[in-house]
Design a binder for these strands. Structure first.
Lengths: 220, 220
DNA sequence: CCTTGTGAAAACTTTCACAGCT
DNA sequence: AGCTGTGAAAGTTTTCACAAGG
């Protein structure tokens, strides 16, 4: 990333970890805890307490020395930083098997993400209702995105059409795309794209598991 | 310490990019190209040519100065490094909506990943066949993993049971896990875990899209 | 002129260590 | 005594710049 701001530089991975912390501290709250140390928070997250404190310090100080962090302050703090204190409207584009599965995924609501529409170009699917969401023709993206002030799109169309559909999304005013199609999208710099590519993840696992073999002296 | 090979430190992200390169060069081959420069390869990947050459250089030199890379050598080279030159057997554990979608995902085969079994604990599902794969009872993991010499597992069970199921997978001899449950798995160090967490990705997108607003001076 | 391969510099991220507050 | 917050050190990754080869 090439942000050339004078603001102190926040590592990208810090943001990803903040999301992890939010999950973690919510779980601890539900266990009845109210004040908690960096040590305790990170115990089950495979992250060092130092890293946690450093990550938080980018956004001002919140803990009490000698004491720890108040969960009732920490949770809203993290939610505010991540922007999940307000509802974020999202759409799913491409209602194949994966798109349908994501439509039904309950975990989005925990973080204030609301799926407001789903799109496909298959006439057999358009008009059907899945999980209370009516499937719309893809040509209606331009109408619905501004109307519902949609921020983000989950893109689960076939690779062939990913680029062109992504361009439509950009045109309609979307700000970011979570792309499940295994292609690199070429879009303007101000559009954020994160790729989720299952085959790549498996390759990374394969590479490192072979490495472990080597080091341990095993044979496959 | 025990590795006999030259001990250069290879960045983790390099491996992820190699998978990207493999996708890219395969596409270029299908366009009839046979020799190609780092510039051309990375043109549509949002990666610099320098990065590409550096990444490759960790594994020895393969290109010809003044010329470029021969695709018929580059592709097998990348495949070998990533370990996708041999079949890798995988299983899917948890055949809910997401698990079923992944069972049907055709992209795994391009990289020699073969799904050999699927597991669930729901009696209503056990015995059913999806995409030519019979769904087995989760208790049979211990039998099937060694029998088919399964390397990797895709974990798509509910969060509550993810840890305990993961431990069963480790017991059975699995080497790595692609975890879709939004919890941190605590497993031995020699087991590789990669997490795919849709809500986290959306939060990262939200964070950065708000940042872009700020920088550009827009309002939401 | 091409383009690769690679040390060296620059940039970035994590870990350390300790001052300072409760 | 216990824990946070944070500069400074250590470690890691990317970018630069250029020698060397077709």
């Amino acid at each position: 990333m090439k942000t050339k701001r004078k603001e102190k530089k926040i590592p990208q991975e810090t943001i990803r970890r903040l999301a992890l912390y939010l999950r973690g501290v919510r779980k601890l709250t539900s266990q009845g805890l109210s004040i908690i140390s960096s040590n305790r928070i990170t115990k089950h997250l495979n992250i060092s307490p130092d890293q946690f404190r450093k990550d938080l310090s980018y956004f001002g100080s919140l803990g009490k020395r000698g004491v720890g962090y108040r969960l009732d302050m920490l949770i809203p703090h993290l939610e505010k930083i991540l922007g999940v204190d307000r509802e974020c409207r999202i759409i799913i584009v491409g209602v194949g098997k994966l798109g349908s599965a994501l439509l039904a995924y309950p975990g989005f609501l925990n973080f204030n993400f609301r799926i407001v529409a789903a799109f496909d170009n298959d006439p057999a699917k358009i008009g059907k209702v899945i999980e209370d969401i009516k499937i719309e023709d893809i040509s209606r993206i331009n109408k619905i995105v501004p109307e519902f002030r949609v921020h983000l799109a989950i893109l689960t169309v076939p690779s062939d059409s990913a680029q062109i559909v992504a361009e439509k999304l950009v045109e309609s005013g979307i700000k970011g795309i979570l792309n499940f199609a295994p292609v690199n999208l070429n879009l303007p710099d101000n559009i954020l794209v994160l790729n989720v590519d299952m085959a790549t993840e498996l390759m990374v696992l394969t590479y490192f598991s072979n490495k472990v073999f080597d080091i341990k002296g095993f044979k496959s």
